[in-house]
Amino acid sequence: MEDEYEGGVVKKFLYVNRRAPHGTVYALESLETVLIGAAFDQDVSVLFIDDGVFQLKKQQQPEGIEVKNFSKTFRALEMYDVEQLFVESESLAERGLSEDDLLVDVELVSRASVHELVDQQDVILSF
């Protein structure tokens, strides 16, 4: 797969996650799309704002509601060379969360600086 796309166009993709996991299918669909973008060797970053920060909460146990625990997959993103995970500090604080509550290492960004991140991208995909 890698060889097939060598020399192809590489764009900067930012996936914006704004919804809590499990209640709707948005979070899982976003994650699958992130993996596909990465498998095609695109330059992929992910931003978690608003309820999207709940997707990275440690200790998720969705088995009781018969949902796959895809939060574990966020730990695999590094192996897919998706190393840029951004989380908005204000969204965390509003929800009583801090960086210690998250299951992966992230880079914190402020609400006022989100547009600077967006400005660097070729494509924005919002979920």
Binding site: V16, R18, Y26, V118, Q121, D122, V123, I124, S126, F127
Partner: peptide, 11 residues
């Protein structure tokens, strides 16, 4: 759409 560099559709 053409005048802007990118589109962000807020769902």
């Amino acid at each position: 759409v053409t005048e802007h560099e990118r589109v962000h559709s807020w769902l």
